[in-house]
Design a protein around this nucleic acid. Structure first.
Lengths: 222, 222
DNA sequence: GGTTAGGAATGAGATATATCAGTTATCAGG
DNA sequence: CCTGATAACTGATATATCTCATTCCTAACC
């Protein structure tokens, strides 16, 4: 927990001198709940590795409009495209819980990727899952109507990506609405509707999926 | 033109035996206008390299609804995520013009990426631009209203990514609408409106941007 | 225990955009 | 040159969803 090189699976097979390379160009720090890890449009200078906690990655799409793209958890890299000549952050990220992060020097990471191709493949592979998630998001906001969007968001947040944890206690109704890409009020009304239909159970912020199959049906049919 | 290893910039610096590796596991073929390169949901078994022509990459979002994500041209890789354990195509692709393609064996490509890290970096870097494009698409369809969406689509299709060529002659109004994520009729009406306002010029399928600055303003303001 | 602030919830009204129905234009084939 | 088919275009209508205004609830704090 105290040391990112030891903790994260993808670092396991590195040689000592490779670990040393990373260690020499990194720093670990903690972001408190609500603090920004980075802001869309800002210079992107380091790669971030989440070690513990929960991070909301979002797209600022207007003065007071944002679309949530992804929740990052321990083991996820953020701002990875900095390695490939992207000077500016394309998204923003904020801590939903107190979050431990390992900041890694861009050049050191590049060097490591060049030196150890197997490592590079593993990392790239992991990052490609993000692209899938982006496509899913696109699918949702385009072709689904409100019910389907919300269903899709609920499924993502309660799915295999976050086993055990109850994600919802960290999310406001607005956050949820921004995942589904609907107005906050609309999200609230639909949640109630789903509850009435026995698809989910609401208790304060906690949301439990009662009838997952039905939710998946709604996701498909829009 | 006849040989993908010689033609594409990213292959230039490969050693002879590395080129040989690729050559031994590839085949070149031509898709005619309108033919599908691959379909969303199908098994993804090879990596495709576009050598000549224009390919429309899209997301099937309903029985008769599709969202266009990207135009691929010579030098672009498609279905690249096949390398990283994604068994199924996440998108569909169709040739907009007669298109020459180099199909490359997945395992051979993996081997090459592992053997030559510098090559891997170049490729990955290029592919990361796709992710940006996806974020742009998401931004557009979320926060912009129709005018902004269409403006954004027009800017992408007339922009630096496709120098020289007039892309629009290969696109139907429906294609265009699917890039902007609006109904075909709405796209047509707006095009006329833009023409009336002196922002673009329409002549059959050809569309020329008259006032790019204004279009960018519309894109920003929604 | 009362007060306040912020999120959650609810209903009425406004509106942008899709949908539908129908006309005109374009183009390939006979 | 005519004919059918396909795409481009146009206007009227319907409706899903956002917006706004207001109330309710909860939790924190003095």
């Amino acid at each position: 927990m105290d040391n990112c090189e030891k903790m994260v699976a993808c670092f396991r097979d590195l040689k000592p001198e490779e670990l040393e390379l990373i260690s020499s160009g990194k720093t670990e720090l903690t972001y408190l709940t609500g603090e920004n890890l980075f802001k869309q449009g800002a210079f992107s200078t380091h790669v971030l590795l989440v070690m513990d906690g929960l991070v909301k990655v979002y797209l600022q799409t207007g003065r007071d409009k944002q679309l949530n793209l992804q929740l990052a958890k321990a083991g996820d890299f953020l701002a990875f495209s900095a390695l490939f000549g992207e000077a500016l952050h394309a998204t923003s990220a904020v801590a939903l819980t107190d979050t431990q992060v390992c900041m890694i020097d861009k050049e050191k990471m590049r060097t490591l990727l060049l030196r150890n191709a197997e490592f590079a493949m593993r990392i790239t592979s992991r990052n490609y899952r993000n692209e899938r998630q982006l496509l899913t998001v696109i699918g949702n906001i385009t072709y689904k109507q409100m019910r389907g969007k919300l269903a899709s968001a609920l499924l993502y947040l309660s799915g295999d990506d976050f086993p055990g944890q109850d994600i919802f206690v960290h999310l406001s109704r607005q956050d949820l609405a921004n995942f589904a890409s609907v107005a906050t009020e609309s999200a609230i009304k639909l949640l109630k509707e789903f509850e009435r239909d026995g698809i989910i159970a609401l208790e304060g912020k906690e949301i439990s999926i009662v009838d997952r199959a039905e939710l998946e049906k709604i996701e498909r049919l829009g």
